[in-house]
């Protein structure tokens, strides 16, 4: 095996150890690299900022524990903005684990102590509703016909925020964060296309390339692009959290990946050239 071939076959343990080191160093000693706010996150922030006080938002937690490191910080940041602006938030989950993420997010936002929000009056959690697009169509079509209680079992007749909410016409905007392809397109189909509602979406970075056409065509008014978008939202809402802390680390590790890709390519072509010389 030539030196080039040895370089191309770096043991994965070595690569992973380098990645781990590249994550730990900037976590312990933050570099403080500047954050350049993206236009997609800025549009999300501006859209919510333009809503009048008391506007009703339908918000979907469409991610579970796997998506929490990416979308959890974004969720906390956008909720800070919602409650700061005195918006009414009807929260549901299209992800099975969404109901487990809800308390984690609320622990980060603390709407009662930070903003004086009252459960049932300013926000409500309906829990997980199965069926993806069928659930979306049901909630937007006739909410009281679909949902009889909130997540804790309180009948919706006793929840003041839901007294004037019957369906899509009563929501001023639909917002969601999701790791699921069906959900990401589903809200655009069911809220924008079917009811012409304003829609905001947040996704894992790996989904952004497939979801950006919806943003470019105005079907999504704002878009949160994974951890990068979450860091943007934390910066814009002035509530720094895990995402801003992760930004340095991601910049550092992405640089390492670029270096490894370059090494891989150089060694590939080097090995090819040396084989040609041998023959």
């Amino acid at each position: 095996m030539s030196a080039w071939e040895k370089l191309a076959a770096l043991p994965r343990e070595l690569v992973l150890t380098l990645v781990l080191i590249a994550m730990i160093i900037p976590t312990l000693h933050p570099l403080g690299l500047p954050i350049m706010t993206g236009q997609m996150a800025q549009d999300w922030y501006d859209t919510v900022d333009a809503l009048p006080e008391g506007s009703v938002i339908l918000f979907d937690i469409g991610y579970g524990s796997g998506g929490y490191p990416s979308l959890g910080p974004a969720n906390i940041a956008v909720f800070h903005q919602f409650f700061e602006k005195d918006l009414k938030v009807v929260i549901m989950a299209t992800a099975l684990e969404g109901s487990m993420m809800y308390p984690l997010v609320m622990e980060g936002v603390k709407p009662e102590s930070n903003y004086g929000a009252v459960y049932g009056e300013d926000y409500v959690f309906l829990g997980y509703i199965a069926g993806e697009q069928t659930a979306m169509a049901g909630v937007l079509g006739d909410l009281p016909a679909l949902v009889s209680t909130d997540y804790t079992g309180i009948p919706i007749a006793q929840i003041s925020i839901l007294q004037d909410v019957a369906g899509a016409d009563d929501f001023d905007i639909v917002a969601y964060l999701t790791t699921a392809g069906g959900t990401s397109e589903g809200w655009v189909y069911q809220a924008y296309s079917a009811y012409d509602k304003d829609v905001l979406g947040g996704f894992l970075s790996m989904m952004t390339t497939s979801m950006k056409p919806y943003y470019d065509t105005g079907q999504l008014l704002g878009l949160i692009d994974g951890v990068k978008g979450a860091a943007d939202m934390e910066f814009l809402t002035r509530h720094p959290g895990d995402a801003i802390q992760s930004s340095d680390v991601l910049s550092f590790t992405q640089t390492l990946v670029i270096i490894l890709i370059l090494i891989g390519n150089i060694s590939y072509f080097g090995a090819k050239a040396s084989r040609k010389e041998e023959t």
Partner: peptide, 18 residues
């Protein structure tokens, strides 16, 4: 898409490292 996928996976791993 690959670049975004790498960033997503690192973002998840970074969350656990943090």
């Amino acid at each position: 898409s690959f670049g975004n996928t790498v960033m997503t996976r690192f973002g998840m791993y970074q969350g656990r490292v943090l």
